[in-house]
Design a binder for these strands. Sequence first.
DNA 1: ATGCACCCTGAAGTCGCTATAGGGTCAAGA
DNA 2: TCTTGACCCTATAGCGACTTCAGGGTGCAT
Lengths: 131, 131
Amino acid sequence: MKIGDLAKLTETRVETIRYYEAEGLLPAPARSRGNYRLYETAHLHRLSFIRRSRDLGFTLDQVRALLRLADDRSGSCAEVDRIAAANVAEIDRKLADLKALRAELVRHLDDCCATTIDHCRIIEALSPQPK
Amino acid sequence: MKIGDLAKLTETRVETIRYYEAEGLLPAPARSRGNYRLYETAHLHRLSFIRRSRDLGFTLDQVRALLRLADDRSGSCAEVDRIAAANVAEIDRKLADLKALRAELVRHLDDCCATTIDHCRIIEALSPQPK
DNA sequence: ATGCACCCTGAAGTCGCTATAGGGTCAAGA
DNA sequence: TCTTGACCCTATAGCGACTTCAGGGTGCAT
């Protein structure tokens, strides 16, 4: 399987696959006579795992750790849980931040009567000295 | 006022202030005999505006636009509203994504009995071929 | 004169890709 | 046989918004 086929199957850009290889996330595959990368099913599985992890918000470093952990089938999954829980905690922080942000922005937007800058509540909210 | 003082007043790192200057967001201040940057109150106001905007999730490009708009006190604030509304829309997209992410992660975490990798629901969820 | 906190510049590093330049490979069609 | 076109290769630079680093200079107190 060539890189373009793998890209289509995993909905990953070709450049991203090469990037993962350079980053050591995906093992370097065999090469054809014409120096094309030739992938096996194992690569497809590994790349799918990586993409799925990324979709769930794990960083590449976390993916690296998850891959390492997943390879030891008899190991404890406590560390996996820890990584996933850390991810949830991180998401919760972002959610809280974004909600507060949104509330503040909407408040100013609602206040703003949309006339001139001089009376714009948004600019006013951003300015250090209240008019 | 030296750069460190300005940094403290605005809770901004010194390097970030210099970065804003290089990016044209903050005008270059006068210099002391020893080549230290000497800031005026106007700089403090402008930097506060920038930081507040960044805190509200605006990109540096948006901040640039807001600063330009804010300078024309008699102009219309419709454009300001547009930028803020775009920001809210962006935040809403991020919120939706994060909520979905969180739900999926938590679901797998709840399922996981925390024994070995071989039975770990999280690893399983990430793996392409269900065990 | 020495130490220390602060300041300077310029360049490189961060994350996770994406894009660009400049080429090579390979199968099908004229 | 030649050419077209889709695909592949490497190496390098770019993105946003900073942060870090290397290698110095300044200014004040002891």
